[in-house]
Design a binder for these strands. Sequence first.
DNA 1: ACCTGAACACCGTTCAAGT
DNA 2: ACCTGAACACCGTTCAAGT
Lengths: 190, 190
Amino acid sequence: MTDEEPRAPRADAQRNRARILEVARTVVAEQGTQASLRDVARRAGIGLGTLYRHFPTRDELLETLLSDRFDRLAARAAALESTRPPADALAQWVSDFAEGATAYRGLAASMLATIEDETSSLHASCLAMRQAAGRLLGNAQAAGAVRADVDGTDLFALVNAVGWIADQAPSLSARRAHLLSLVLDGLKPH
Amino acid sequence: MTDEEPRAPRADAQRNRARILEVARTVVAEQGTQASLRDVARRAGIGLGTLYRHFPTRDELLETLLSDRFDRLAARAAALESTRPPADALAQWVSDFAEGATAYRGLAASMLATIEDETSSLHASCLAMRQAAGRLLGNAQAAGAVRADVDGTDLFALVNAVGWIADQAPSLSARRAHLLSLVLDGLKPH
DNA sequence: ACCTGAACACCGTTCAAGT
DNA sequence: ACCTGAACACCGTTCAAGT
């Protein structure tokens, strides 16, 4: 056998990686997507360099925490597309997305940033999700349920903006569902 | 004369204060409302402690930079109220506000934060402006031009959210006017 | 009365030295 | 092959010492 399997990572490296992710989930839940990476390393009981070795950028860490969610939402869009009327499918997907978008403080900002930053590790998984949602939008527009001058980026930006509002203050967070329905209602043709 | 005038600040203190504001305007224009205060002091050629003496918090400095703008917008609302039909007056005011809201990166976030934080120095001047705008909203609703389930805070949050979107990426910034019109259009009764 | 900058407690990021 | 933590370049904030 001249072509061998690539060696599996060393056991200690695997343990460290898992430990970082476990702690990162907690710390990001507490502090948001801008959480202190030093704090993550400290609480995981590993050296700061080890964290950077496994996750060279903050986005690489976030991507690992969030890609499942993005993949699930992309699959959800595909499922809704084939089982629901266009307007329903879009409304339901946005509602599902919006619910998760407030999982972490700063998440709306992190997601919107990936649109522009193609070097971000979050770019690909987030783009796939956006494209799946874009098809739902297109269908809803073809059915006359959404005005024609809205594109997928507009919709994504607006939904994240409502998520951002909810991040800013508790009293605004309480209005989140209402603000979202105002915005979505407003996208219907007059 | 037993009750004397309060003494005018020392000449050097006055000069320092003016110099801080001058430099802060530049640095905030460059770096946004989260600009480094250390950088402001450095570029103003004054000690860091002097900056903190004149402006104990970041918001106190921002308030001094921004209160003129808020006062002008409050006055603008009053003027529009007495000269234009309700729907026009509101649309024009929001357009004026939105234009200024992108003057500095981070400004939308700073403004929205003052809603909740009553200890912020920006709270009072921003509240007065919001109340003036709230009257325009009420008039527009009474005239049937805006749906009834929108309050002043909703409108303020949404307009700032669109400003925030524009902060996130150049490509989104180019869609700002379109996104704003989408949102405002959407607030009309269906 | 006011100014100054060192001091303290934090960051993110890199990298030489270790195992 | 991987881990570690010191080192560097930044923050915000406070305060003892100066003029």
